[in-house]
Write a protein that binds this DNA or RNA. Structure first.
Ligand SMILES: [Mn+2]
Ligand SMILES: [Mn+2]
Ligand SMILES: [Zn+2]
Ligand SMILES: [Zn+2]
Lengths: 148, 148
DNA sequence: AATTTTAATGAGACTAAATCTCAATAAAAT
DNA sequence: ATTTTATTGAGATTTAGTCTCATTAAAATT
C-alpha cells in the first residue's frame, strides 16, 4: 500500500515535470488521462478514455482527450499504436521494457513481444542510412493460436 | 521493347487470373488501377490514383478505386503502407524483393530497406507464439540525412 | 487572500479519408 | 443476340480527429 501510493506519486510527478518543462499547466483533466493510461496495460482508444473518465464523474471533452494524448505521445509518456482498423490505440510507454505487437486479424487479440535483436538491427539500419531514428512502428498481423 | 510488352502482358495476366480465382470480373477500371500501381515504384494514395487515371481520360469513380485497392491488397498484389498522416499509401508488392520503410518526419521522404535477419526473427517470434503470420507492418520514423 | 494574467477547457461545428447506396452499365454466360 | 449478374458512378453517409471561440481555471503577481 505504501509502495503503491508512492508509485502513483512518482508517475504524477513525471507528468508535472513534463508539463512544466513544456510550459503547460498541470490540470485535473491531464492528470486523470495520464493516470488512466499509466495504471492499465490495455490498448485504449480516445473515445474509450473519454467515456471511462466521464463515467467516473469527471467533466471532460473529446477535444481535451485528443489534445492531452498529443502532449503525452510527443513527450514519450505514452505510445500510439495502429492496429489497422482506423482507430489509434494508446498505451503507457515503459522505457525499461519496450515491446511491439502481434495482432490477430480474426479476433483482434493483441499479443506483446520484445526482441532485442530486432531493436539492434533497427539501429543498425538507421545508422547505415545516416538516419536519426526517433521511434518505430512494428506490427505482425496474422491468426492467433486460439483462432486457428 | 519486346521484353517490355511481354512484361506488361504477364502482369496483366496475373491480375486476370487473380480476379478469376476470386470470381470477379476483369474490368477496364481494375486493369488501369493495377497497371498504374505495378508500373511505378512510388507510394501512391487513393486520390492520386483516381486523378491520374481521370487525367488520362478514363471514366472512373473514387468508390471503384477504393474497392479495387481492397481486392489487390487482399490478394497480395499490392501493399498498404501507413506513413502516419492518416492517408494510406499503396505500392506494387514484389514477392521476390520484400522491403520495409524509413520515413522522415521532417520532409516525408520514404527510404526503403530490406533486412533478412529481421524477416527471419519475425517468423521466429510468430512461431514462438503459435501465431500464423500473414503480413507485417514495419516503419522506422526519424530524421533523414538531408534534414539533420 | 484577492486580483490579474494567461493557458486550458467544453460544446459543437468542421474536415477529410474511407465506406455505403442504388440506379445504370458492362462483363460474361447462355 | 439475349439474358444474367457483377461492377460502376454519383453523391450521400460515416467516423476519427481537428478547430473555433466564449467560458473557466491554473498560476503568477499584488
Ligand atoms: Mn502493448
Ligand atoms: Mn516501398
Ligand atoms: Zn485470434
Ligand atoms: Zn527528411
Amino acid at each position: 500500500m505504501r509502495l503503491n501510493l508512492n508509485k502513483i506519486k512518482i508517475t504524477m510527478q513525471v507528468l508535472k515535470e513534463t508539463l512544466h518543462k513544456e510550459g503547460l499547466r498541470y490540470t485535473k483533466q491531464r492528470q486523470e488521462i495520464w493516470n488512466e493510461l499509466r495504471s492499465s496495460d490495455k490498448h485504449r482508444d480516445a473515445e474509450e478514455i473519454l467515456f471511462t473518465l466521464r463515467k467516473r464523474g469527471l467533466k471532460i471533452s473529446r477535444a481535451t482527450v485528443y489534445r492531452t494524448i498529443d502532449v503525452l505521445v510527443k513527450n514519450n509518456l505514452i505510445d500510439k499504436l495502429d492496429i489497422g482498423d482506423g482507430r489509434a490505440r494508446f498505451e503507457y510507454n515503459d522505457k525499461y521494457l519496450h515491446h511491439d505487437h502481434l495482432i490477430c486479424t480474426s479476433c483482434d487479440k493483441i499479443i506483446e513481444f520484445n526482441n532485442n535483436e530486432i531493436e539492434e538491427l533497427q539501429n543498425k539500419i538507421a545508422k547505415q542510412h545516416n538516419f536519426k531514428l526517433l521511434y518505430h512502428s512494428h506490427q505482425l498481423f496474422g491468426i492467433c493460436k486460439d483462432c486457428k
